[in-house]
């Protein structure tokens, strides 16, 4: 059974005024336990609005969001529960840091859950270890950390709530390649070790290709594609038409096919590219 299910979700901004615009339109989505769903789309395609419905920060204009089959917008209690079961980490989360020490900041979420003190302590230390923050940094002021450390501390603040679903909005935005790698590795390790479901919002196809198991493509407030990463990137031409990027390896194979070389285009990592080339060369050698 899907852990989170979105049915016919529509969200209008400025409803019933002249400026009414649909941010999300008729989106259906099922998130299975343990999967890593990548959400792809332009700025303004509705990605961020969509994920803010997962933890009931926004209320749908139409449609509903079900968590384990129950509507998250039932009442105040269910909304609050959704906040903790679906951990949402916003874009540029480092700007939400506010406490005197990193330790206190990471414990903000768990403390709001009214957990006992030793449980909070355990969660803070586990989360800090996941994001690779050294114990010695925990007593420092979050404002004294470097940019990358701040980002990781903020992500730890969401992980410390130990949500069943961790939703990250552009966690690698504005980081250098090494910082990106670090965050992606961290997400993969977190998922492997805790077995939780992860939703990763990104406009970087390379990131999605690297870590996601399934992908959802948003374009102009609608969900236009859904499927395994292979299925989605196999429709690379459509992605390009939407003005979205595709991974470099996919692009090479698309180009090859356009020039008449008989190749599959569901290639999205370098390793798959190598395999596909070897297959092709083997076939030609035999012929």
């Amino acid at each position: 059974m899907a852990v989170l299910e979105v049915q016919g979700l529509t969200h209008l901004y400025g409803a019933k005024t002249a400026r009414e615009t649909a941010a999300v339109q008729d989106v259906d989505l099922r998130i299975e336990p343990g999967e890593l769903l990548g959400v792809i789309g332009h700025t303004g395609s509705g990605k961020s609005t969509l994920i803010q419905h997962f933890n009931a920060l926004l209320t749908p204009t139409r449609g509903q969001v079900l968590l384990d089959g129950a509507d998250v917008n039932r009442d105040k209690q269910s909304r609050r529960e959704a906040r903790f079961r679906v951990g949402l980490c916003f874009q540029y989360p480092e700007y939400q840091l506010f406490e005197e020490t990193v330790y206190k900041d990471i414990s903000f979420g768990p403390a709001n859950m009214q957990l006992p003190k030793d449980e909070i302590d355990r969660r803070v230390r586990t989360a800090a270890a996941f994001v690779g923050l050294d114990e010695s940094l925990l007593e420092k002021s979050p404002f004294d950390l470097s940019g990358g450390e701040k980002r990781r501390a903020a992500i730890a603040g969401v992980m410390a709530m130990e949500p069943e679903i961790l939703v990250l909005d552009e966690p690698t935005a504005g980081l250098d390649p090494r910082g990106r790698e670090r965050i992606l590795d961290m997400i993969l390790r977190y998922r492997r070790e805790t077995g939780s479901t992860v939703v990763l919002v990104s406009h970087s196809m390379e990131d999605i290709a690297r870590v996601a198991t399934r992908a959802l493509v948003m374009n102009r407030s609608r969900a236009v594609m859904q499927g395994t990463v292979g299925e989605v990137f196999a429709r690379g031409e459509e992605l390009l038409q939407m003005g979205l990027d595709v991974p470099a390896s996919t692009r090479i194979f698309l180009e090859l096919r356009q020039r008449g070389v008989p190749v599959q285009t569901d290639v999205y990592t370098a390793a798959q590219g190598v395999d596909a080339f070897l297959r092709l060369l083997g076939k030609e050698a035999r012929a």
């Binding site: 906040r83 916003f90 903000f108």
Partner: peptide
């Protein structure tokens, strides 16, 4: 944006007395 981010971490801005609400504004 900041309000949404803190609400996502379970910040409660709506309930409690005056002192609690004032404190809740700090984040």
């Amino acid at each position: 944006r900041i309000m949404s981010a803190q609400k996502a971490r379970g910040a409660d801005l709506e309930t409690g007395g005056f002192v609690r609400r004032a404190k809740a504004l700090l984040p």
